[in-house]
């Protein structure tokens, strides 16, 4: 076995000089002695991870369990983790007591249209940044990147004024239309990185065949960008499915509400009806988790690159 260690690693070690001979002699003994501790270590790691997973999931289980409790039984003590009886009807009641189908339809409209608009315009801009040269390109790209850091709250007020002038308050337009103008800076960034990494052979061949820039974008580059587009699609869908503040600001009557706004509606004159609220919460959460488990790779990549997790 090669015992050579690069100088950098020695630096990283930052410790006493190597004792190569000793290390070589000792190899077998050491690996034997490591077997037992390694197993014990795995047990400890399992225990810790199990505990972390339990603490992570307990609230979610509580959500599901509460969603199945009869009215008035939500606070029963000790906690009934498996409610008896399990009131599956809560889900139906939750859908019926508020205009859940309307909220769902509105959410789907917003999510679908922003997805289409975002994917089209973001990928086009990304392809432009990746594959053409023009004066000011790098400045504009930096400008776009820096707008990533802009707090949403800062543009919210003047945007509200703008949409008010346009007469778009209490319509879905303020949620949808901006997506057709480049999606989000982050999508452009992500797709641009992807396009830059593509080998140019196929595009060059298409160019020789006389295809123009936009044709090559649509027929050659886009079909190759499947994984990157899937990542962007998931980010876009998640964002619009979860978004609360923009709908809160722009949508005033219930016929225009999205799902996120509807979660506050379950209450009688005294208190929040937690069983129905939790049933509604479960119905909002399950599609997200389903997308996660179905498209884990793209999902994780999206969160990894964007850093959107948890917010």
């Amino acid at each position: 076995m090669d015992t050579h260690v690069s100088p950098e690693v020695k630096n990283l070690q930052g410790q006493r000089p190597l004792m190569q001979d000793h290390a070589a002699d000792d190899t077998t003994a050491r690996s034997r002695s490591l077997v037992v501790p390694r197993k014990r270590r795995a047990v400890v790691v399992h225990l810790i991870l199990f505990a972390v997973a339990a603490v992570s999931l307990l609230p979610l289980l509580y959500m599901v369990s509460t969603s199945l409790k009869a009215r008035g039984r939500e606070f029963a003590y000790p906690i009934e983790w498996i409610p008896n009886p399990a009131v599956w009807r809560n889900y139906l009641t939750a859908v019926e007591t508020v205009e859940a189908m309307t909220f769902f339809a509105n959410t789907m409209i917003v999510t679908t249209l922003t997805l289409v608009g975002g994917i089209l315009t973001a990928s086009l801009a990304a392809y432009g940044f990746a594959r053409t040269r023009f004066p000011g390109r790098d400045f504009l790209f930096m400008l776009m990147l820096s707008s990533l850091m802009l707090p949403y709250m800062v543009t919210l007020i003047p945007q509200f004024v703008l949409f008010r002038e346009l007469g778009w308050i209490n319509t879905l337009y303020p949620l949808i239309v901006p997506a057709f103008f480049g999606g989000a800076p982050f999508y452009i960034f992500l797709l641009r990185q992807f396009f830059r990494g593509l080998p140019t052979d196929l595009e060059d061949a298409a160019k020789l065949d006389g295809a123009g820039f936009f044709r090559i974008w649509w027929t050659v580059a886009m079909p190759l960008a499947g994984p990157a587009l899937a990542t962007v699609a998931i980010l876009s869908i998640l964002h619009h499915w979860n978004d609360f503040i923009a709908p809160l600001v722009y949508l005033h009557t219930r016929d225009n509400w999205t799902l996120a706004l509807g979660i506050r509606l379950f209450r009688d004159q005294y208190q929040v009806l937690f069983n129905l609220t939790m049933a509604y919460a479960v119905m909002m959460t399950v599609p997200v988790f389903t997308v996660f488990f179905a498209f884990q790779k793209y999902f994780v990549r999206g969160i990894t690159i964007s850093g959107m997790g948890g917010r």
Binding site: T121, G128, P158, F180, F181, F213, F214
Partner: peptide
Amino acid sequence: EAINGYVAILPWFLGFLIFTAGPMVY
């Protein structure tokens, strides 16, 4: 090539002016 590039980024750039830069100034 430059014209193609400008056209490609135009939707984003307009959006940047209308929904970000303009509102910031305003």
